[in-house]
């Protein structure tokens, strides 16, 4: 297609050159004495058109074949470079965004995991504390029970000796007050009687 366009443009220019020459060689009577531009009998006036045709043709081909493609290549290279750099920048941005998203997700996951760990640790600690409390409670209960048993036993033992003390004290008091030693049997019966009525 490009070759066809080139051939076409060349043909067009050959046609144009022919027209230039025809125009330059066209006989005319429009000779003005004032303006040298209208002195078409002067061969230099017509000759400059032919020269112009050749020079313009050379100029056109120099531009179309060499200069303009060169400038176009420089501009194309630059725009390609800018495009590539933009693509790299966009890719870098995408990667950065992805990395930021991954980082944020990792942070979220880590936070959730940390919370779970914390929750688990707190639960374990709570259970351990409860267990320790229970153990302490059981131990204290056992100690209390043991102490209560000791107290009960001591109380029983103390209460068992209260009769003897009451009996001896009664005998001693009667003897001191009355001067007669009371009958042991009678004192014992009275102490038992008072004890049963919770007087002692």
């Amino acid at each position: 297609m490009a070759v066809i366009i080139k051939i076409y443009r060349t043909k067009v220019f050959v046609v144009l050159c022919s027209i230039f020459m025809l125009v330059s060689l066209m006989p005319t009577s429009a000779h003005a004495t004032g303006m040298p531009q209208l002195d078409f009998r002067n061969p230099l006036v017509n000759g400059q058109v032919i020269w112009g045709c050749v020079i313009f043709l050379v100029f056109y081909f120099a531009l179309s074949r060499a200069m303009l493609p060169r400038v176009g290549r420089v501009l194309e290279d630059r725009s390609k470079r800018i495009r590539d750099d933009l693509d790299i920048a966009r890719k870098a941005k995408r990667d950065t965004d992805k990395a930021i998203a991954e980082l944020q997700q990792a942070r979220k996951d880590a936070l959730i995991e940390a919370k779970e760990h914390l929750q688990s640790a707190l639960e374990e600690e709570r259970l351990a504390t409860e267990k320790r409390i229970r153990e302490v409670h059981d131990r204290l209960k056992a100690e209390i029970d043991e102490a209560e048993r000791d107290i009960s036993a001591e109380k029983e033992r103390a209460l068992g000796s209260v009769r003897d003390i009451a009996y001896e004290t009664t005998q001693l008091l009667v003897k001191r007050l009355v001067g007669v030693t009371p009958d042991n049997q009678h004192v014992q019966e009275q102490v038992e009687n008072a004890y049963s009525r919770h007087l002692i």
């Binding site: 230039f20 125009v23 330059s24 531009q37 209208l38 078409f40 006036v45 017509n46 400059q48 058109v49 112009g52 045709c53 313009f56």
Partner: peptide, 8 residues
């Protein structure tokens, strides 16, 4: 020169 401008 009109010859030039006309040719163009």
């Amino acid at each position: 020169h009109i010859a030039i401008t006309f040719a163009l």
